[in-house]
Amino acid sequence: MLTHALDIVTSAGILYVVALGLLIIFGVLKIINLAHSAFLAIGGYVAVVATEFHVSLWYAIPIALIIGIVIGAILEATVLRPLYARPLDTILATWGISIVVVQLITLIFGRETQFAASPITGAISIGDITYSEYRIILLGLALVLGAIMVFLFQATELGLSARAVIMNEGLAQAMGINTRFVRFFTFCAGAALATMAGALITPLVSIEPNMGLPWLINAFMLVLVAGSSVISLGWATLGLGGAQVLVSTFINPIIGGLTIIVLSVLVLRARKTL
């Protein structure tokens, strides 16, 4: 029983960390960032390089964050900004970015699977069971990250501006908000959250250029369900991620793999007909 509960909350935590960057870009820029999976991969390869230089993952994570900011800044300014008037083209552009990034990674690191050293490989005892220590740590990080996001959005000027842009970009401009800067800042933050998430999940997964793809579709569905709220995303990951764990455990993992997608479609449909 306790194991199932831990599976649910830790899986939700991992999904939350992975989907957060996608959510804030979707909320503010109104585009689905298809380069999200490529950004996850960049984070993964930061961990690979860190391993090569015998640097702990705990240092790789902030490095991944900074690299994400830089890459996000460059891409927003050069690729996305000229396209904002054409939202569909902007989404296509993120797809293009994704292809280019994956090919660059392949050129530099090759296509084969890479491995990053994990700072923690063991299990800890909780009550009378043992459980993966890293998953517990990830859950804690997800909660901290969620709290930081809520604080930023609810209690800072920039967060208020971002919420205004989310709700009505034209009106936000008319209120004197530099929406161009808000978009720029948000894209950098979203990219950084993605690269950081990519580094964070490396102790659980292996790293190859397309490592982000399987995560993208689930994150995408969760974001569609959650809308643009960092709090809703928490509930969505807990509800849908939890359902996935339960289905995987009590029915089978193949149906489990479809759970988030199917439930999301049902939720979105129900919401439409309300």
Binding site: H4, D7, P214, I254, G257
Partner: peptide, 18 residues
């Protein structure tokens, strides 16, 4: 148990193994 190729989460299966 079989896990989809796209899944990178083996935890639910390990919970069943336990």
């Amino acid at each position: 148990d079989f896990n989809p190729l796209s899944s990178s989460d083996w935890e639910p299966i390990f919970t069943k193994v336990r």
